[in-house]
């Protein structure tokens, strides 16, 4: 990458939504041919755009650090789709490191995802059926604060921050969900404000006495 030109644009930030998480399935009749005997689940961990759009224009590679008991625990995915499929029997924390394209001249971002294999809120206890897919998916936004001009141009080339307006089967994270969340929080704020008012009155009473 050509150095020198990477001057940062101050007081400006660009955000891009990403989705990360995992899906998991119990083995059915057919076991993957090379899975160890004690493994029970097939799982996939991924990092992608909200609508499965291409994010390789900003992400160079994604590194998944698995549990130490896996052979070659550090797995690097250098091309989209940034996902990894493995078999296993237990849940653990997976360290995800996102490395950005060279033009960005940014440090990688590191975070953790708890690999989920089992349904937690199974009120009626039933044995997990094969092919029932479990998923644990999170929405987040990558914020590039004060990007350099070159990377800024790349970011500006695509409207990456667009979200679908309504919830769909394939993509729950939408403007609708965002609005619902904002409404929920606003209600929470109202409740807290009420309580604050009550407390203030009580304190005034106490001080008055």
């Amino acid at each position: 990458m050509p150095p020198g030109v990477s001057k940062r644009i101050k007081t400006l930030s660009v955000s891009r939504p990403i989705i990360y998480g995992n899906t998991a399935k119990k083995f059915g009749e057919v076991r993957p041919p090379n899975a160890p005997a004690e493994h029970t689940h097939l799982w996939t961990i991924f990092v992608r755009g909200p609508q499965n759009e291409d994010i390789s224009y900003i992400i160079k590679k994604v590194v998944f650090k698995l549990h130490d008991t896996y052979p070659n625990a550090t797995r690097t995915i250098e091309a989209p789709p940034f996902e990894l499929t493995e078999t296993g029997w237990g849940e653990f924390e997976i360290n995800i490191k996102i490395h950005f394209v060279d033009e960005a001249n940014e440090k990688m971002v590191s975070f953790y995802h708890h690999l989920r294999l089992h349904p937690y809120y199974n009120i009626k206890w039933e044995p997990q059926k094969p092919n029932d897919e479990i998923s644990s998916i999170f929405y987040d936004e990558l914020v590039f604060n004060e990007p350099n001009e070159e990377f800024f141009k790349i970011l500006m080339s695509r409207p990456g921050s667009l979200l679908p307006s309504n919830k769909t089967e394939t993509c729950v994270f939408s403007k609708q969900l965002e609005q619902e969340e904002i409404d929920r929080i606003n209600m929470g704020i109202d409740k807290v404000d009420e309580e604050i008012k009550e407390l203030k009155e009580k304190i005034a009473k106490q001080l008055g006495n």
Binding site: F100, A104, E106, K107, D140, L142, V143, F144
Partner: peptide, 10 residues
């Protein structure tokens, strides 16, 4: 704000 990239949730 410090320049650089971060996850908003952090």
């Amino acid at each position: 704000l410090p320049p650089g990239v971060y996850l908003r949730s952090s």
